[in-house]
């Protein structure tokens, strides 16, 4: 290995280590101004380049951006653009632990702040998977009803009435997201493991039991998504990547 490459890999290894040893005590100031997030938000997105950049993302999130029902990879298609910019910028700045995604978020893999602006514009416009992973309790069950009450009492102020979220405020759209992915993130946010979570949410859910968590997320997964945001069927393929 040549010395330059060795140095580069050493630096990456160090940054990976520092990203993974950060503890719950290092919770970052939520959405602090500045950094690449602010830079990307101001740039005019180039959708054509966004499509090129997305090829890297598609290896895991799939060419449709629909992720996996197993919850390993989230659905990112149709997510609010500001949310996508914040999360990408946070992951590559080491503010959100995500060792699987970290190398793909780096400038060497996808490019600079302009690339963030471009790829997020592309992803936000992708139609969502109409067949996302749902929780086990359909409407009419007592578990669904309990989840509804929990959601109305705790979540609607930010995530809105049916989990629509809020682009302007960087609150994610959670309707249409895979059940198992949300369970993991909720747990990590509650237990301080995600690190870039909104402190108001951490406070709001700190007394949620695992049982409450399952019920409230179950309810979200049974909410309807605006049909205009959905792909026509679960068999839809992204024409930009169909050969």
């Amino acid at each position: 290995m040549n010395p330059k490459l060795l140095l580069k890999s050493g630096m990456i290894a160090l940054s990976l280590m520092s990203a993974s040893v950060a503890s719950a005590a290092d919770i970052v100031k939520w959405n602090a101004a500045g950094g690449e997030e602010e830079e990307a938000l101001k740039l005019e997105p180039d959708l054509e380049n966004g499509m090129d950049v997305f090829e890297v993302c598609s290896a895991c999130h799939l060419t449709e951006g629909w992720g996996e029902k197993t919850g390993t990879f989230p659905q990112i298609a149709g997510q609010h653009r500001n949310v996508l910019i914040k999360q990408l910028a946070d992951i590559r700045a080491g503010n959100r632990d995500n060792p699987t995604m970290y190398p793909f978020s780096l400038p060497e893999s996808i490019g600079d702040a302009q690339a963030l602006a471009d790829v997020t514009a592309y992803i936000a416009k992708l139609p969502m998977n109409p067949d996302w992973g749902k929780g086990p309790w359909p409407p009419g069950t007592p578990e669904y009803a309990k989840g509804e009450k929990l959601f109305k009492d705790n979540c609607v102020k930010c995530h809105k009435a049916h989990g629509e979220g809020d682009n302007e405020k960087f609150y994610p759209k959670i309707q249409g997201q895979h059940y198992k992915y949300m369970l993991r993130q909720f747990e990590w946010i509650r237990d301080g493991k995600r690190r870039n979570a909104n402190p108001d949410m951490m406070k709001q859910i700190k007394n949620f039991s695992d049982d409450d968590m399952k019920k409230v997320i179950n309810w979200v997964t049974h909410q309807k998504v605006d049909p205009k945001l959905l792909a026509p069927s679960k068999d839809w393929v992204n024409p930009d990547f169909a050969d």
Binding site: L6, S9, P103
Partner: peptide, 18 residues
């Protein structure tokens, strides 16, 4: 199973040298 995302499509060009 997304192995190739990190280890390379040819299984000998990993995304990071580590």
């Amino acid at each position: 199973k997304t192995c190739w995302s990190c280890h390379g499509k040819d299984a000998k060009s990993p995304v990071l040298p580590i």
